[in-house]
């Protein structure tokens, strides 16, 4: 599969009809791109990977608008790390009979306080989407993840679902989520789910009785979620980047805002 690495100067990427392409949008310490539009043509197969790993300085008002052409398939993976706060808005617009599989992985530590808005706008008939958000918050981190499935009146025959999972790994972390549905068509299937996870005292007791420390237990949880996320990224180099970033965070090697 061909690759396109998004440059700091890119404002719009146009993918021609029938293309198969991996788009890597990696925002690291040295490059910040605040606004980008991606227009995907018809009958394309696209993998889009967004990695946000901004430095201590906050990243404000990053926006992405992704237009998915008729009969195209998009596999989108978003990883939110960074050392400062992140404010991002991602809007996905689905065309006729298109398909979107989106997974977002947000792992915030220290005193990060981030807000992500991630919307799925169905504007033509017979499209499908499945969306998963995994939010891991440790230390004193805070995050709000708002996501709307918006089905326009003309988007009959849509089938969509969003699931949000929140993992609070510390007493001082806190999270918000809003999995919204805004539906203006009647011949649709739409659903959402949200859940939280915690280790009960009994779980902790069991694991500690097996000789695991709290830190090791957290490592197990994070590793398991990480593996699930990167398992669906078939580009080994990109998977490795994400895996290393997560490990750095888990082991305290990231210099964060205090």
């Amino acid at each position: 599969m061909k690759q396109k690495i998004v440059k700091a100067t890119d404002q719009k990427i146009v993918v021609p009809d029938g293309e198969e392409l991996l788009i890597l949008d990696y925002i690291s310490n040295d490059r910040l791109k605040s606004n980008l539009q991606i227009n995907i043509g018809r009958q394309c197969l696209i993998k889009y990977i967004l990695i946000i790993d901004n430095p201590v300085s906050d990243l404000n008002q990053l926006t992405r608008a992704i237009y998915i052409g008729d009969n195209s398939r998009l596999y989108s993976r978003q990883a939110y790390f960074g050392a400062g706060d992140i404010q991002a808005q991602i809007n996905n617009y689905l065309g006729h009979a298109s398909f979107l599989d989106s997974q977002a992985f947000l792992y915030q530590i220290a005193k990060q306080d981030s807000q992500i808005e991630d919307n799925y706008i169905f504007r033509a008939p017979n499209s499908q989407g499945k969306f998963l958000v995994t939010e891991i918050l440790d230390d004193q981190a805070k995050a709000a993840y708002y996501s709307d499935i918006i089905i326009k009146p003309e988007a009959q025959g849509t089938d969509s679902r969003i699931d949000m999972k929140l993992y609070l790994l510390s007493d001082q972390a806190s999270g918000q989520f809003l999995p919204g549905l805004k539906i203006a068509a009647n011949e649709v299937k739409a659903g959402h789910g949200a859940s939280t996870f915690n280790l009960s005292d009994a779980d902790l007791f069991y694991l500690q009785a097996r000789g695991l420390t709290i830190s090791q237990i957290k490592k197990l949880i994070i590793n398991s979620l990480t593996e699930r996320f990167i398992a669906c990224i078939d580009d080994q180099k990109v998977a490795k980047i994400i895996s290393v970033l997560i490990k750095k965070r888990r082991t305290g090697l990231v210099k964060t805002k205090q």
Binding site: Q176, G180, E187, V188, H192, S195
Partner: peptide, 25 residues
């Protein structure tokens, strides 16, 4: 039309929450 706007705020790590919603004809 039908909108579902469920805001969920969790400030305690021991919370257990499950939300499920569906819309259809």
């Amino acid at each position: 039309s039908s909108d579902t706007i469920p805001l969920i705020k969790i400030k305690n790590a021991t919370a257990v929450l499950a939300h499920e919603a569906s819309a259809g004809r």
